[in-house]
Nucleic acid binder design. Structure first.
Length: 136
DNA sequence: TTTCTAACA
DNA sequence: TGTTAGAA
């Protein structure tokens, strides 16, 4: 459903920064509750534009950032405060958006966060009623 | 109908 | 984090 909406937008050609997707599409795509996205908004981790009617409008870049957040949260087990700190660090280090996942992965590797440990994190989180990670 | 905020479970 | 009430 959300994917079809995305594809139709992509076919036309688009600005990756252009706000165009409502919260329902992003929630569907990332498999998170809308509440979670609103929390990300409140915590300033993922802040979308707003429509004239105050509706949140996410850009393609926001979606990519959302995927990264889900990766850190679900795969690495980092909480929102940790993610805030990481984003601030990435900003201070001027790490480009395309390099951020590799940057974090390298650190995870250095402190021995193995795939087994990531799997354990996923299991822990899913046992707490959270949906298993789908985002790569 | 969908999304908003805010509060409760 | 998930769910819901009431407003827009």
């Amino acid at each position: 459903m959300a994917t079809e909406v995305l594809m139709s937008k992509m076919e036309k050609g688009f600005d990756s920064d252009k706000p165009m997707f409502p919260i329902s599409v992003i929630a569907d795509l990332l498999q998170v509750h809308q509440r979670t996205l609103r929390i990300y908004n409140e915590e300033k981790i993922l802040v979308p534009e707003r429509s004239p009617k105050n509706r949140r409008l996410y850009s393609f870049n926001d979606i990519e950032k959302g995927k990264f957040i889900q990766y850190m949260s679900r795969e690495l087990g980092i909480n929102i405060i940790g993610i805030k700190i990481i984003f601030e660090l990435l900003k201070q280090q001027k790490v480009k958006a395309e390099d951020q996942k590799a940057f974090i992965d390298e650190i995870a590797k250095n402190i021995n966060i193995t795939h087994e440990m990531q799997q354990q994190n996923k299991e822990k989180l899913s046992r707490r009623g959270r949906k298993p990670a789908t985002v790569a």
